[in-house]
């Protein structure tokens, strides 16, 4: 069904830092059981930026939880530097930024960074952590006195503090303004370029596209696509075309790039990679076409298209 893409030169394959092997996670028991993630395969190599993309509730945080040893998989395996993710030796090589972490408000920024730097054998010098996380001048402030954006930066600094080989970020840009987001992207790229492995979760296709070397798309706990950003984008419909037309569903489904077609009375709706070929074909076949609109489908719809795509292929 899916194939993992690996670099072609087998002798110089970057090391696998962390992986999930057929990992499933179920919360609760019996009738109340919720299958959060099912049979997830995931791997991160050094020097690689992997984006785990999916809508809210897709199981992204559960996947991160298993990868970092917060939650043991119900079945399958999680490996961190070849060890159990709960192994302290493995954790000394990883830095993590979780989605919501209520940091004690009465500790100062410097104290928080010192605390986490102390856990690691060769931490990043304090000045470098402060600079990389953009915390200059805030070192003596208590966490509770910081703004939301500044607090996120402290959490980012905590992830960097140990100078780890693997960095895991759960939705790092949520709640950041556009400028801060761009800044963080640049830092994340630098981190991957320096030879570290970086995993991040996001529900923005744009973000995954701009940053990642590889994207894994998950929805309702299963991988629905993975590959390089260009490959993923080619499969995700970029445009929704809606029009009143007499063109039949069967004909329209055959047009280039059409992922999904549906009809509702006089309305024909198409999801496709781009709008132009569709519009050309539409005007050619039906000069009387009216009420044409072109919009961008939501990520949810894009994921749905991918899902039905996969189901059709089964």
């Amino acid at each position: 069904m899916q194939q993992t893409r690996r670099p072609v030169s087998p002798g110089h394959e970057p090391a696998v830092l962390a992986e999930l092997l057929g990992a499933s996670k179920q919360f609760g028991h019996g009738l109340a059981a919720v299958q959060a993630v099912q049979g997830l395969d995931l791997e991160v190599r050094s020097g690689e930026l992997l984006a785990v993309l999916g809508p809210n509730g897709a199981g992204k945080s559960t996947a991160i939880g298993m990868l970092t040893g917060l939650a043991a998989p119900t079945s399958g395996r999680a490996r961190l530097f070849g060890c159990d993710p709960r192994d302290v030796r493995a954790r000394r090589r990883m830095g993590v930024m979780l989605q919501a972490s209520g940091v004690p408000e009465t500790l100062r920024v410097r104290e928080l960074l010192t605390e986490f730097r102390g856990y690691y054998p060769a931490p990043l010098p304090m000045a470098q952590v402060v600079r990389a996380a953009g915390l200059d001048g805030l070192e003596s402030r208590m966490f509770g006195e910081l703004s939301g954006g500044q607090q996120r930066r402290v959490l980012f600094g905590i992830a960097l503090a140990g100078d780890p080989e693997l960095l895991v970020f759960d939705e790092p840009t949520t709640g950041l303004d556009v400028e801060a987001r761009r800044g963080l992207w640049a830092t994340l790229r630098d981190l991957a370029r320096s030879g570290r492995g970086v995993v991040l979760t996001t529900h923005y296709l744009e973000e995954a596209d701009a940053l990642a070397d590889r994207i894994v798309v998950i929805d309702r706990g299963i991988v629905i696509a993975q590959g390089r950003p260009a490959e993923i984008k080619a499969r995700v419909p970029g445009r929704r075309v809606r029009a009143q037309t007499s063109v039949s569903l069967v004909v329209a489904s055959q047009w280039p790039g059409v992922v999904r077609a549906s009809r509702e009375g006089p309305w024909l709706e198409l999801l496709a990679g781009s709008a132009e070929p569709i519009l050309r074909a539409l005007l050619d076949l039906d000069p009387l076409v009216s009420e044409v609109t072109v919009t961008e489908p939501s990520l949810e719809e894009a994921f749905l298209a991918l899902t039905s795509d996969m189901e059709a292929a089964r």
Binding site: T187, L191, S194
Partner: peptide, 10 residues
């Protein structure tokens, strides 16, 4: 804002 400092491994 997070500055895009080049971070080198020690």
């Amino acid at each position: 804002m997070i500055t895009p400092t080049a971070i080198r491994r020690t």
